[in-house]
Computed example of a mutant assay.
Amino acid sequence: MKKLLSISFAALLSAQAFANDAANELRTHLADLKGFQAQFKQTVIDADGVSIHEAEGKLSLARPAKLNWQQVMPEQDMIVSDGSTIWYYSPFVEQVTIMDASEAINQSPFILLADDRSESWQNYQVEKQQQGFLVKSKDDPLQAAFWVKLNADNSISRFDIIESTGQRSQFDLQGFKANPSFSEKLFKFEIPKNTMIDDQR
């Protein structure tokens, strides 16, 4: 019994070491990426492998945790984060939802692309998988996982958001630009007049 426990404990330590190595490798790849800009094409694939939705747009990320996400097709939805506050704006329903950025980081590993702070990464485990890195919550098995593929020059060509149900949102990136010069206005959102506000902070 002691031998079995010893083997199990050694395997656990070995798995943890590989996870730490993968996390360190991913963070090293992203270390020089202070921000990026790209066009995206999103394809949502259900658990049976059937494509059920497509969208297109443009995204800009900058550290720490700044985001400008503009979907242009089929709807013109928008997500903006200045690092402390996130605004999700849907012009179709004329509503903006306001959230705390730190809470959003705890709910989605995607934002880690734009956040190099150790306190944000400590809640996630990283594995090398299928020529990329899979990032999952350590504590919440129902939280969506995040997979990212990096090229030899550390540019990003694709990332996926994988729901616990098996549904996957695949984002293929084009026109990737690393470390562009951003205006701070890009990460601020002015609420249009006559817009309904849902403040969840």
Rank of each mutant, 00 (worst) to 15 (best):
Q42A: 04
L113S: 13
D77C: 06
F18A: 11
S155H: 06
W147Q: 04
A19I: 01
A152H: 05
D77G: 04
I79C: 05
I161D: 12
V135R: 09
D100E: 04
Q143P: 08
A19V: 01
V93S: 11
A38T: 10
Q76T: 12
Q200W: 03
K149T: 13
S108T: 10
L113R: 11
K3H: 12
S183I: 04
E163H: 01
D140F: 09
N194Q: 04
L142T: 14
L33T: 06
F146E: 12
W147H: 03
L173Y: 08
Y89W: 08
W147A: 00
M73F: 10
D77F: 05
T43G: 13
Q76K: 09
S118A: 10
E25W: 08
I162K: 07
L150N: 15
A10W: 02
P91E: 01
L113H: 15
Q16K: 15
I161T: 12
A65K: 00
D46G: 11
P141D: 03
Q143K: 15
T85E: 13
L61V: 05
E56M: 03
L61D: 01
E56N: 04
Q95A: 08
A15C: 11
Q129P: 09
S137F: 06
L33E: 06
F92C: 01
S51Q: 03
H29D: 07
F171N: 14
F9G: 07
A114P: 02
Q76G: 06
K193H: 06
E75G: 07
F146H: 11
L5G: 04
R201G: 01
V126M: 10
E103M: 06
L5W: 01
D172P: 03
F187H: 00
S8G: 02
N106K: 09
F182P: 01
Q174L: 05
A38F: 04
A31K: 13
L61Y: 03
V72N: 07
A17D: 11
Q122R: 12
K149H: 13
I197V: 14
E127T: 11
A19W: 08
F36L: 09
K41C: 03
P180W: 03
V50E: 15
A19C: 01
A152V: 07
L4A: 14
G175L: 10
V126S: 12
I86D: 02
S60M: 10
I105E: 02
L67N: 00
R117V: 13
F9L: 12
D115E: 06
V72L: 03
Q37P: 10
M196R: 03
D46V: 15
N20S: 04
A62K: 02
E163M: 10
S137G: 08
S84H: 15
I162C: 07
F171K: 15
R27A: 13
Q174E: 12
D116T: 05
Q167K: 02
Y88W: 11
G83F: 04
A22V: 03
W69C: 09
S84G: 13
A31N: 12
A62Y: 00
F189Y: 15
M99W: 06
S118I: 07
A104R: 10
K2Q: 06
F176R: 07
P64Y: 05
I98G: 00
P91T: 05
S137H: 02
I161V: 15
D116R: 00
Q70H: 07
